[in-house]
Amino acid sequence: MSSTELPRTQGVPQTPPAAPQSDDSVTVRHVALQGATLVVRRRTPEREGLEPAVYVHGLGGSALNWTALAGELAGRVDGEAIDLPGFGHSPPPDDGDYSITGHSRAVIRYLDAARRGPVHLFGNSMGGAVVTRVAALRPDLVRTLTLVSPALPELRPQRSAVPTALLAIPGSGSVFLRLTKDWTPERRTGAVLALCYGDPARVSPEGFAEAVTEYERRLTLPYHWEVMERSARGIVDAYTLGGQHGLWRQARRVLAPTLLVYGARDRLVSVRMARKAHRSFPDSRLLVLPRAGHVAMMEYPRVVARAFGDLLAERGGS
């Protein structure tokens, strides 16, 4: 991806609605960094002294994507999930840079500012590419790396992933809205879940209702489609990078013990890439879930948590 900074949209309000309120199990705060403000959700750990963890979501996601896994791991790590710039409740970055490098820079700045590192770093999809770059560039910040369906370059992407790649085309958001103008919020949300889940029936009625509310909220944000289009373009551009900036080259530079989680029913990141990832990350373990789709940490959080616990046990952690 070129490091050229993209201009912000002029005359468009850039501040999203206030972040959701904290409760007894989760605290939510805004963290001001150089060039960006991140909303961070911290799951209250079950005891003091646990090692820190940071969760990074994928394209179109938010910190909420990690709620189930963070709950499973509350007795193992002191976890924080971040909304990347422009996603969830975080406002867009000042420079309008939504490349993998731009998102990685935001994560690094947060980890430096928080002074909690090294952390157990988790990433899903686009977030997996982001944290791979973080781990390669700043090994001092990473204890372990857990990647759930990471968006690493594929020579032959699955046909079902093509519509997502088309988001990289400028104006694709307005085309989507015209094509789906007669869709109900439930139908829109159902289409997203069908793309991401191996079995959408695993989503509870309460979870589906929450997903509908969150998706409709995002569609009201004036910068929503700009963020989606530019972030999708950032993924596509990262796939074309060669040399030392290529994601597979950077995967080989990762020093941290790495857990790779793939879903056999993933329609966005092919399970065919699992073996290549296992060969590329020098110190890696591979978990393939036969019924999972693109978001195994949401579909099978207990299984993913158990695999992470095994990783901790191997390195002598808590």
Rank of each mutant, 00 (worst) to 15 (best):
S3Q: 06
P7M: 14
P7Q: 01
P13E: 06
P13V: 14
T15G: 12
P17T: 03
A19L: 05
Q21F: 12
D23R: 11
T27K: 06
L38R: 10
T44G: 03
P45C: 03
P45M: 06
E48V: 14
L50W: 08
E51D: 15
Y55S: 04
V56D: 12
V56N: 00
G61F: 10
L64G: 12
N65L: 08
T67R: 11
T67Q: 06
G71R: 02
G71K: 15
E72C: 10
P85Q: 02
S90I: 06
P92D: 05
P93Q: 12
G102Y: 10
G102S: 12
H103W: 09
R105D: 08
A106I: 10
Y110N: 06
A113E: 06
A113N: 07
A114S: 15
G117Q: 15
P118A: 11
L121M: 13
V130W: 07
V130N: 10
T132F: 13
T132K: 07
A136H: 03
R138E: 08
R138P: 08
P139S: 08
P139Q: 10
L141W: 09
V142H: 05
R143T: 13
L147D: 02
A151C: 00
L152S: 00
P153N: 09
Q158S: 02
S160D: 10
S160L: 01
V162E: 09
P163E: 02
T164I: 00
A168W: 06
P170D: 06
G171N: 03
R178I: 10
L179Q: 15
L179V: 12
K181R: 14
K181N: 12
E186S: 01
T189F: 01
V192S: 03
C196H: 14
Y197P: 13
R202M: 03
V203H: 00
P205D: 01
T213H: 03
L221G: 09
Y223P: 03
Y223F: 14
H224T: 15
E226T: 07
M228G: 10
M228V: 05
R230I: 01
I235E: 12
Y239V: 06
G246T: 04
R249S: 14
A251I: 01
A251F: 07
A251L: 00
R252E: 08
R253K: 01
L255D: 13
P257L: 01
D266F: 10
S270I: 07
M273T: 12
L287C: 03
V288E: 00
V288R: 07
V288W: 00
P290A: 15
P290Q: 08
R291S: 13
H294I: 02
V295R: 02
Y300I: 02
R302K: 09
A307H: 14
F308D: 07
D310M: 15
L311P: 09
E314F: 01
G316K: 03
G317Y: 04
